[in-house]
Design a protein around this nucleic acid. Structure first.
Length: 560
RNA sequence: GCGCCUGUAGCUCAGCUGGAUAGAGCAGCGGCCUUCUAAGCCGCGGGCCGCAGGUUCGAACCCUGCCAGGCGCGCCA
C-alpha cells in the first residue's frame, strides 16, 4: 500500500466514524453510509484531498450538504499525523490540507523498491492469459496487428506488475479455408516460377512476398514437386511457407519488444479431437441442431440474433467451432481470466463465443475482450486503404524501420483502444521531435546526465534517510514528488481498466513536471544539503520514469 | 433495418468510472541558453463538450430520441 492510497483510506475511515458520531449526537440522520470518494482536487487551492460524503448524505439527512459537512467536521477525529487544515467548501466538499512534508516518505520507498516501485499484488497470483495479434501466418504484420501487439503487450506488463501470473499467447490460424487459399496461391507461384500457366485465385494471396517464399522453397526442393500430386505439393508448400512466415512474424514481434510464452496451433485443436469434443458436449447440453445439412449452435438462446453454423454441409467445422474449443482449452489450462485483444471488426463474435462458453458450463465473465478500433493510415492527407489481398499495406517491419520501435509503441498505446487511430505516415516518417515519446525519454536522459555529472564531481545519491528531504519546498519540487507518489495508483488503475494509455499520460505529466523542476531548481546546487535532497528526488523521478516506460515497452535512454 | 464504437480548441487526442473555473500536444503569436542536455521552460490567444430532452445538490461522463462518421450483421476468418 502506498502513501496516497493509505492516506485516502485513513481519511475515509475517519469520515465514516465522524458520520456515525454525528448521527449518535442526533445532528444528522441516515440509514447506510453511502459509497463516497476521497480524491485529489484538480485545483490545488482546494487542498490535497476532497471528500464528497456530505453531498451524498444530504438527501437522507434532509439537510443542505454544507450543513451536513459542518456536522461531519464537528465530529471528525482529526487523523494524525499530517492533517494541517480541514474546511468545508463549494457545494459541500470537505477539503483536507496535509502537512507540507506528508509525502516525503515516498522518496525513500521509491529508492528502496527501485525496479518494483509502482508494482503491487492486487492480482494475488491469479493466472491470466492475454492473447493478442494472432494474425494469419500467411503474410507480414500490418498496422492493425501492430496496435494489437503494443496494446496486448502493455496490458500483459500491467497485469504482471499488479501481481497476476501472466501468459502471452499467439493463436496460429493454421487450419481452414484461408490455408487452402494460401496453398493454391503458393502453388500458382510455384508453377509460374517454372514458366507454367497458373493464376493466383481471385481471393488468394497476391502479395509479392509469396514469390520470394516460393523462391526459397525452390532453393531447397527445386522442381521436385513440379509433377507431384497437387495435394502433396500444396501441403509441402504450405508447411514450408508457414514455417517461414511464422519465423518472420516471431522475429518482427521480438524487434517490437514482444515475446510470447505460447504459440498455439489451431490445427492441433482439430487433430487432438478438441473441436469434435466441444461440439459433442454442446450437443449433450442441448444447444445443437441440424438444418440444411449443417450443424448449428443455438446462439439465439444467449441473446444473439441468429444461430451459428458449427459444422458445414461439407462436414468441415467452422472457425467458430475451433474458437469454442480453443477457449475451453484456455480454461482447462487453468487460466482464471482470459483476455483477448481483438480488432473491432470482430466484435460480432464476442457475444456468441461467450454464449457458447456458457453453454459449456463456464462463467462467460471470465473471458474479457478488449476491442480496438481499426487503424486508419493517412498519407499526404489521403486515407490509405490496407488490404492483404492486394498486398498493399504498410508492414510492422517498415514501421519499425522508419519510426523506430519506441515511437511506434508509444504512439499505438497513447490512445484508448476504442478510439479510431489515425496514423499520419508523413508525420511518423519525419522522425521529428513532435513525437511525444521523445519528450518523455528526454526527461530520463536529462536525469541520467545530472547523475553522471554528479558522479564526476564525487557526489552520489545519498541513502534517502540521510538526506534532509524537508528542504524540498519549492512548488515544482512538491508537484514532482506528488506525481512520483501516484505511480502505484496509476498502475493499479490502468491494470484494472485494462487501459495502458493512462500510462502515457502519466509519463507525459511526470516528464513535464520534471522539465519544469529542472528549469527552476538546480540539482547540483552550492548548498550541499539541498543538493543531497535533490539528488534523492531526481533519482526517484528516474526510477519512476524508467518503470512506466518499461510497462509501455519503451526504452529509457541514458543519453539523447 | 439491427448491433457495437466514436463525436470535446484550427488538427490529433486526454478527461482518473457523476464533482468545484473542461485539459495536453501540434499549429499560431511573444519571451528565455557565458552555470546540471533548448528534443527544454515561461506566457498569450483559441470551446453552444454533435443536437434536443431527462435523471439530481451537481452531467463532457448516466437514460431516451435524433444527426454524422467508422465497423459488423457469411455454411469467410
Amino acid at each position: 500500500m502506498n502513501i496516497i492510497q493509505e492516506t485516502k483510506r485513513r481519511l475515509a475511515v475517519a469520515l465514516g466514524d465522524a458520520a456515525a458520531a454525528a448521527r449518535a449526537a442526533g445532528e444528522i440522520s441516515f440509514d447506510e453510509l453511502p459509497d463516497f470518494v476521497i480524491e485529489a482536487p484538480r485545483d490545488k487551492s482546494h487542498g490535497d484531498f476532497a471528500a464528497n460524503l456530505a453531498m451524498l448524505l444530504a438527501k437522507q439527512a434532509r439537510q443542505s450538504p454544507r450543513n451536513v459537512a459542518a456536522a461531519l467536521v464537528r465530529h471528525l477525529e482529526i487523523p494524525q499525523p499530517g492533517v494541517a487544515r480541514i474546511e468545508v467548501a463549494g457545494p459541500g466538499f470537505i477539503n483536507f490540507t496535509l502537512d507540507q512534508s506528508w509525502l516525503l516518505p515516498v522518496l525513500p520507498a521509491v529508492l528502496a523498491e527501485d525496479e518494483h516501485y509502482g508494482w503491487s499484488n492486487i492480482g494475488q497470483g491469479v493466472k491470466v492469459q492475454v492473447e493478442f495479434v494472432s494474425a494469419n501466418p500467411t503474410g507480414l504484420l500490418h498496422m492493425g496487428n501492430a496496435r494489437g501487439a503494443a496494446l496486448g503487450d502493455s496490458i500483459a506488463n500491467l497485469l504482471t506488475a499488479t501481481g497476476y501470473e501472466v501468459c502471452r499467447e499467439f493463436y496460429i490460424n493454421d487450419a481452414g479455408n484461408q490455408i487452402e487459399n494460401f496453398g493454391l496461391s503458393l502453388e500458382a507461384r510455384y508453377l509460374q516460377a517454372f514458366g507454367q500457366e497458373a493464376e493466383v485465385p481471385p481471393d488468394g494471396y497476391h502479395g509479392e512476398d509469396l514469390v520470394a517464399t516460393v523462391r526459397h522453397f525452390i532453393a531447397r526442393y527445386g522442381d521436385k514437386y513440379l509433377d507431384a500430386d497437387p495435394t502433396l505439393r500444396r501441403e509441402m508448400l504450405v508447411r514450408f511457407a508457414l514455417e517461414e512466415k511464422l519465423a518472420a512474424i516471431r522475429q518482427v514481434l521480438e524487434d517490437f519488444g514482444v515475446v510470447y510464452d505460447v504459440w498455439f496451433s489451431e490445427q492441433y485443436l482439430h487433430d487432438s479431437g478438441a473441436v469434435a469434443r466441444a461440439i459433442t458436449d454442446l450437443e449433450k447440453n442441448g444447444y445443437i441442431y441440424e438444418k440444411d445439412g449443417a450443424l448449428w449452435f443455438k446462439a439465439s438462446d444467449f441473446g444473439e440474433e441468429k444461430d451459428e453454423v458449427l459444422v458445414r454441409k461439407n462436414g468441415l467445422p467452422t472457425y467458430f467451432a475451433a474458437d469454442i474449443a480453443y477457449h475451453r482449452n484456455k480454461f482447462e489450462r487453468g487460466f482464471q481470466r482470459v483476455i483477448n485483444i481483438w480488432g473491432a471488426d470482430h466484435h460480432g463474435h464476442v457475444a456468441r463465443l461467450k454464449g457458447a462458453l456458457q453453454a459449456l458450463g463456464y462463467d462467460p465473465g471470465r473471458l474479457e475482450v478488449v476491442l480496438m478500433q481499426l487503424v486508419r493510415l493517412y498519407q499526404g492527407g489521403e486515407v490509405l486503404r490496407m488490404s492483404k489481398r492486394t498486398g498493399h499495406y504498410v508492414t510492422l517491419n517498415e514501421l519499425i524501420e522508419e519510426v523506430g520501435r519506441d515511437a511506434a509503441r508509444y504512439f499505438f498505446v497513447m490512445l484508448k483502444s476504442d478510439s479510431h487511430l489515425e496514423f499520419d505516415l508523413d508525420l511518423a516518417r519525419s522522425q521529428s521531435a513532435d513525437n511525444p515519446v521523445y519528450y518523455v525519454q528526454y526527461a530520463h536522459a536529462r536525469i541520467c546526465s545530472i547523475l553522471r555529472l554528479a558522479k564526476e564531481r564525487g557526489l552520489a545519491v545519498p541513502p534517502a534517510r540521510e538526506a534532509n528531504l524537508d528542504l524540498l519546498r519549492e512548488p515544482a519540487e512538491v508537484e514532482l514528488i506528488k506525481q512520483v507518489a501516484s505511480l502505484p495508483e496509476t498502475v493499479a488503475g490502468a491494470a484494472l481498466a485494462l487501459e495502458p494509455h493512462r500510462l502515457t499520460r502519466f509519463a507525459h505529466d511526470l516528464a513535464s513536471l520534471f522539465h519544469s523542476f529542472y528549469t527552476t531548481c538546480r540539482v547540483l546546487a552550492d548548498d550541499p544539503e539541498l543538493c543531497q535532497a535533490r539528488l534523492v528526488l531526481v533519482e526517484a523521478t528516474r526510477i519512476t520514469l524508467r518503470n512506466v516506460l518499461y510497462l509501455l515497452g519503451v526504452t529509457a535512454p541514458e543519453r539523447m
